[in-house]
Design a protein around this nucleic acid. Structure first.
Lengths: 367, 367
DNA sequence: CTGTAGGCTCCCGGCCGACAA
DNA sequence: TTGTCGGCCGGGAGCCTACAG
């Protein structure tokens, strides 16, 4: 297991995977765009708090299977581990383009470390401004074999190179690279009555190559070098890697807990995968963020708060809610855990899909 | 976790998976045909020997990643566990059609149990005769969009319903069901100069639907009800589920060992997946087969033996070899393990791809 | 007996504007 | 502003035979 010494470096270091992925750097801006606006990975070298319970939840979500009563509890494994984050690498599944991050964590004795807190704090402030970016959910027409892709006007004007309007009709060839650095070329044309931006030749190859369907999203960004990049986000349709056919979900859950327990007992490094779009919540939290929330938020029943959510088109908006209870999510295995121990209600009735349990560092109290 | 009482029943019980797979019975004959002629699952209710080391090897093979030195050793976990096999269910990956079996094992105190041995013995004798079956490796022409599928003459005559040769040309519609019980229809026609059997209309849909390429194999069988079934076997091409993006391979290996260790310590059931075409060797061995080998085979250096292998077209043949050494495969974690502790050489020089380590129950000594 | 290639047909992939939400 | 449809053209999917190994 490698453990590079660059604990400073950039916020996101992209790198090769465990398996076959060639030695290819994943573009961090594109990864971030695919992961969504709420995702903010902690910096390599900083201190973090790791929640095995949350990790287990991600496994459950990926397998579409709840934690089984068979799973032994690990009485020596605490509900949170203070760790140093040695390494963060960005990845994308070669088959599905699903983005995920690999993190190497090493538990450290949990004595207060002012220096660690400061460094963690620094990494948090480094949240980059959103790059030039647009995201569109594909319509039936966009994905049918009958035609091309209808580009939203603003998107085309903001992201694509300007067309030469002296041509009749104005058109150009676009080249955009995906997470695996594959180049896709499209004919971009401005035509029709009324006039509109369209991607024609090359588009259907992309749709079939990525196996996209109506409801999936495509996003374009322009990176710092003015290069055009594109990524995809699949709709939350069912057929995920349901059962991996390699390991039972029980063994997976046990693997998560046993690996963390072993690492905690020996203060040795261990590796986790964080899958931002599969997981309901981040389970590796910057130490500074954690401390800030725990120290400053005085939690009480009836307390009002705001919380960020991602919108349909990859924006953010805040919803307001009220704390209705404080209790263990799992009183048997994880007693007195802070993982989603706040029961909440939401102001807006449409909030059916929002979670009814959150952790303290996810919310902003209203002062 | 269910634990049905039918410890007698049929050799192979097919059932639903952990995850979403609908409540669908996988046809045991088709599963067996896809798994290959050497695969012989132990019967539910019988006693087996489970080798965590072999299980770990399967995980490594599935991830294309060797076991890492980071994995803690489980000193309390023996290299073999005597278990009762509560349940065996057959599965096929919804995406790839890869066949695998889920087994529920429960460790039992390892005292000799004559009754268990007998029952295990019974299950072994029940090896069914091969059903009517053919298997063909797809050629470039079979998979090109230019044409259909050329059916080997003997195969068509043995498996397909007879054609009405009064027609000009003789033709019929075939319906065959795959592992997921999806029906595929093909036009079967006998034409050309010289005459031959071909599948035309419908064939290309099947090829693209299953994402088959030249080198992959397709197989047809007729089950007891004279129904036509078809399965596929992919060539050993690289892009497997390299990294699952859910769990690090370290955690997977730990999960395998920790689950087995926990089950062994408490005599509670645990679940494993056996993937016949990914794994180099079976790691759940019928107790009778194990005992027979251990008791009757007097192993010595220089001993001659035969061993079964699968041929190109899903037949079997024996190769001869000599035992060249007896030693631990992994002297650190698995001392004195019988898992592939025999080093061997093969008579035929072309045996480059054959393994140089085997376990005692895989070979037949030459008397 | 069966793999590949050439020929031929026609279906549907894919580009267009019309129209309406 | 943009989703869907009807029109329409051309390339390639797919059925056939010929030929060779």
């Amino acid at each position: 297991m490698k453990m590079p010494a660059n604990s400073s470096g950039s916020i996101l270091t992209a790198n090769t995977g465990e398996g076959g992925e060639k030695n290819r750097i994943i573009n961090p801006e594109l990864w971030q765009a695919c992961a969504g606006p709420l995702v903010n990975l902690p910096a390599a070298g900083s201190h973090v708090v790791y929640f095995p319970q949350g990790h287990s939840e991600q496994v459950a979500a990926s397998m579409k299977k709840d934690v089984d009563a068979q799973i032994p509890s690990y009485p020596n494994l605490q509900s949170k581990l203070l760790c140093i984050l040695h390494n963060v690498t960005l990845h994308a599944d070669t088959e599905t383009d699903e983005v995920y991050a690999q993190m190497t964590l090493q538990p450290v004795p949990s004595q207060f470390d002012r220096d660690a807190l400061l460094r963690s704090d620094l990494s948090m402030k480094a949240h980059k401004p959103q790059t030039e970016f647009f995201c569109k959910t594909l319509t039936a027409s966009d994905t049918s074999t009958h035609g091309g892709f209808s580009v939203p006007r603003r998107a085309a004007e903001k992201i694509f190179p300007p067309l030469d309007f002296s041509m009749q009709p104005p058109a150009q060839e676009l080249v955009a690279r995906d997470l695996h650095d594959n180049a896709w070329t499209f004919r971009h044309i401005y035509r029709g009555q009324p006039k509109r931006h369209l991607l024609t030749t090359g588009w259907s190859l992309f749709v079939s190559g990525k196996r996209l369907f109506a409801g999936d999203s495509v996003l374009f960004i322009r990176d710092e070098k003015q290069q055009l990049l594109l990524g995809i986000r699949r709709a939350n349709r069912q057929p995920a890697n349901l059962s991996s056919s390699v390991l039972s979900s029980d063994s997976m859950h046990i693997g998560v807990l046993a690996a963390a327990a072993h690492a905690a007992a020996n203060n040795t490094p261990f590796t986790v995968f964080y899958n931002p779009r599969a997981s309901p919540s981040e389970f590796v939290i910057p130490l500074a963020k954690y401390y800030k929330a725990v120290c400053s938020n005085q939690i009480s029943l009836g307390m009002r708060f705001r919380m960020m959510f991602e919108t349909e088109e990859s924006g953010t908006r805040r919803y307001m809610g009220t704390i209705t209870g404080i209790s263990d999510l799992d009183g048997v295995r994880w007693k007195n855990s802070q993982w989603r121990n706040l029961q909440v209600g939401w102001d807006e009735a449409t909030a059916g899909e929002r979670r009814n349990r959150v952790s303290i560092w996810e919310i902003e109290p209203i002062t």
